[in-house]
Amino acid sequence: MISSAGTRKIHNSLNLVVGIQILIWLITGCYMVLMDINFIRGQHLIAPTQTAVIAADTVKVQPADIQSRLGPISSLRLLAHPSGPAYLVNHNERSLLISAVDGRTLPDTLNRDQAIEAALARFNGAGELITAALLETPPDEVSWITPPVWQVSFTGVGEPRLYLNAQTGELISKRHNYWQVFDLFWMLHIMDYDTRENIHNPLLQIAASLALISALSGIVLLWVSRRRRPL
């Protein structure tokens, strides 16, 4: 049977090992609980989604016209492009933008003015435009996006940023500095320093088990000390 001194030694040793991580859990947990998740996700930055209205009389080219020109296509979608209505066509494992007005093939990438126009149409914040940059390597906060991507930044709380599809101008993601803090704290909280997704990683399981043992040993010590206290 482990003595009181042995229990105290185990308790103190475990506190040295997991004490800092327990403090990190408390700090990061408080931040994540206190912050509104919709704010973190940037919902306040985006105007309510409205279906783009494309006037029927502006669509001069029909899908059949495109298919007869290109041959078999995987998919086709009509969308509101900054240069006018256009079809996004998947053909031979490649995405093409074809004007629905005159049938010409549009550039694969929006220019800066078009990207800004598309961003302003979606932005709902109070800030003003700072920069618009076409990125060939997305930053870590949107590393999952296939480049190139337009990053349009604004002034305001948290320095909001919109990320747009470089070909169509459609919104892919929105980020701000409070999201970056949340993402960092989430990584520290779940102790997944690689993908920041795996809440069942061995490091977290070991730390949680040691913290539990430390807490239980503290309870045992408290119970023993109370029993020894004279009445």
Rank of each mutant, 00 (worst) to 15 (best):
L34G: 04
G218A: 10
E159L: 02
L45M: 05
L78K: 03
R161G: 08
S217G: 02
G6P: 04
V18I: 00
Q205W: 08
I20P: 07
P85I: 06
Q205A: 13
P107K: 07
F182G: 13
E159K: 09
D65C: 04
A100H: 15
T7M: 11
P230L: 03
F182E: 10
V101T: 12
T155N: 03
P138D: 02
L70V: 09
H81L: 08
A64Q: 04
L26S: 15
A115S: 10
M187Q: 15
V17P: 15
Q43Y: 05
S143T: 11
T137R: 05
L162I: 11
N38A: 12
V101P: 15
Y31I: 08
M32N: 07
A126V: 06
R175T: 14
I206A: 04
L110P: 12
N165V: 01
T146M: 03
I206N: 04
N111F: 07
N201Y: 10
G29W: 07
I2A: 11
N177F: 00
H11I: 04
Q67C: 13
S13I: 03
A100S: 09
T105F: 00
V152D: 13
N92S: 12
L16G: 07
S143P: 13
A119C: 06
Q180F: 02
V61F: 02
N177P: 04
I190E: 11
H91R: 09
Y87F: 06
A118G: 06
I130W: 04
A133I: 05
G127Q: 07
Y87E: 10
E128H: 02
D192I: 15
M35N: 14
W179I: 14
Q114N: 05
P139V: 00
A86Y: 05
L203K: 09
P147R: 11
Q167I: 03
G125A: 08
I24K: 03
E170I: 09
R112V: 05
F182K: 14
F39E: 11
K9Y: 06
S74C: 12
L106K: 08
N198W: 03
Q21M: 09
L23C: 05
S75V: 00
S99H: 10
G103P: 14
R8S: 14
M1T: 06
P72I: 05
